[in-house]
Nucleic acid binder design. Sequence first.
DNA 1: CTGTTAGCGCGTTCAG
DNA 2: CTGAACGCGCTAACAG
Lengths: 322, 322
Amino acid sequence: MTAHPCLADVARRAGVSTATASRVLSGRGPSSAASRDAVRRAAADLGYVPHPVARRLAHRSGTRIVFAVRDARADILRDPFVTRAAAAISAATEPEGLGTALLRLPLSASAELDRLAADRSVAALVLAGHDRTLMAGLPAALRDRTAVIGAGGSDVDSAAGVGALLHHLYGSGRRRIALIAGPRWLAASRAPLTAYTRLIRATGLPERVVHGDFTTVRGRSAAREILRRWPDTDAIATVSDATALGVLQALAADGLRVPHDVAVTGFDDSPLAEAVHPGLSTATHPVELIAVSAVRAALGAPSPGRLFPSRPVLRTSCGGAP
Amino acid sequence: MTAHPCLADVARRAGVSTATASRVLSGRGPSSAASRDAVRRAAADLGYVPHPVARRLAHRSGTRIVFAVRDARADILRDPFVTRAAAAISAATEPEGLGTALLRLPLSASAELDRLAADRSVAALVLAGHDRTLMAGLPAALRDRTAVIGAGGSDVDSAAGVGALLHHLYGSGRRRIALIAGPRWLAASRAPLTAYTRLIRATGLPERVVHGDFTTVRGRSAAREILRRWPDTDAIATVSDATALGVLQALAADGLRVPHDVAVTGFDDSPLAEAVHPGLSTATHPVELIAVSAVRAALGAPSPGRLFPSRPVLRTSCGGAP
DNA sequence: CTGTTAGCGCGTTCAG
DNA sequence: CTGAACGCGCTAACAG
C-alpha cells in the first residue's frame, strides 16, 4: 500500500458508485444499510482518508481562519494577550484540518476587509478590536462567517471581573479610585467602564477616568496624568496587566508605595502579574476556551457559550487600606 | 460584476486557451509576448484572482503550515516564547494564502508525525523542541518540507548570547557561576552549555550545572538545588526568563539579595524581564524574523539566514560584584 | 509557442 | 435508494 486511496477506490471495493460512497461517508443523503456497511468496511480496509483540499474545493469553502486584530499600533501582534489568543486559535484549528492566519487591521480597515471577503481561501474570520463602525462596514460576504472576540461575541465577563476588583478596592477602604480604561474606539472598553461608573454612582465616590491603550508606556503616562489631576488618588484600576505595570513604574518613580499609598489592579493575569513586585492583583481568563468558542462560532457551529468568567486573583498590589 | 471570474473567463476574453492563460499568469512555461499581453490585460479587466484552493489541489500541495512544539508538558502552548513564535508564524503565513496550525508533540511523537505525513492538508512542518532521535524518525514524506526552529535550523545564536551574559558576569567579578541549562533531551540545549563549559575551561572556575525546563517552578527548585550543593554560588545564569523568575523568587525567599549576593541572568527578553524587581538581565531575539525564516525554509524557498543575533540586555540583576 | 485532453478528488444534481 | 455525469478551478502532459 503506497499512495492514498481515493473515493473511487473505496467505491470500487464496496461495489457501489462514488456518489453512494460519498453519501455514506459524509453522512448526507440517503443510503441503504447494505451499501452503508460495504462502504464503511471498504474505507476501513483501505485506510481511506478524504482529501481535505479536494473536499473544500468541492464545498466551495476556504482553508483558513483569519484572526484579524484591529489596533492603531502595528506591534499589537506582539502583545501577550494577542499572541496567546492567536496561539489558542491556531491550536483550535488544528483538529479541523484548518490553519490560522494572523493579521493586523488598522483602525479604518475597509480595504483589508474587502480583500478578505474576496479571498476564497478564507473559511472564516475572527475579529478582535472591533467597534460598531467596523461591524457596520463588514462586507456582506463575511457576515455569516465572522465571529468576534470581545463585546458582542466570545467575551470575557469584564464587567464582572473589573467590578470584583473595584469592589475589593472599595471594600478595603479605598475611596478615591481612578480607572485607566481601554481606548475610546474599542467596543470592549465599555463594559469595564460601566462597572466603574456603577460603583461610583452607588457610593458617591469621585469619578476619575482616563483612557489607555494596553501598553506599559501609556500606563506610565496615564498614571502621571491621574496623579497630576487628582493627587489624592489612593487606587488605580486598569484593564490590562501591561498598563498596570506602567502604573507601578510611575508610582515607584514618584516614591509612592504600593499598596500603602496607592493600590493597583491589572487585568488578564499575564505572567507579568506574578512576576512584578509587589505581586499584581488581576483577573484571570480562559483564553483558550474563548478562542475555541470564537472559532466554532465563526465556522457556524453552535458556540458553547459567549460570556466567559473573569476570576479575580488577589495579590499584594491591592492590599489593605492606606 | 458579481462572482469571481475564473481562468476560462480570462482565456475567453483574451482569445486564448486556458492552458496559455495559466502559463502566462503563473509565469511557468513559454508564452509569446502577444498572448502574454492579451492575457494580462484580460485578467486585469476582469479583476481575476486565481482560486487558492483549486490551485493547491492541482499542485497537490497543502494549505497549512503545522507548527509542532515538542515538550513533555501540555501547557507548553501557553509558554510566552511559544505563543510569540506561533503568532509570528501565523502572521508570516497570511500573505502566502496559507494558515498555521499549532500542535504539541509529546517527547515520543512518531505516531503524530506519521499522521502529519499522511495529512494532505499539510503544506509544511515547522518543528521546535527537536532532538536527533526525533529528526531521525521524521517520515520521509515530510523530510523535504520540514524546517526546524532551534539547533540546526532557524536559530538564535544562543552560544553567543549566553556567552556574552556569562562573560559579563565574569567580567564583573563573579567567580562561582552556576548554569541552569535547558532539558537534556533538547538539541537546542547544547549551544549554551558549550558556551558555559568554554568559559569554565578558559578560566578554571568550578563547573556547576543543573537542568531546567523553561518553567518558573523548575527555576525555583533548580535554584534551591544549586544553593544546597554549592552554597557559595555568586551567580546563576539561565536559558529562559521564566526560569530566571523562579530563581529570583527562590533567592528572595532565602533572603539573598540580587545582585549583591547572587547575580541572575535570563534569556529571551520577555515582558517579564523588565517587569521584575530587580530588572532582569537577559538577551533579546528577533522572534518574528526567525519565524519568517523557518516558514520560508519549510516551504522550500531559500531562507535568508539561519543564525539570528542574540543581543544582551543588561539590567540590574547582574550588576556589580558582591 | 499553442490548444486539446486528461487529471487533481470530491460533491451533487437528476434521471432511473 | 442508486449511479452516470457534470461541476469546482486550475495545472500538466503531449501532440501539433
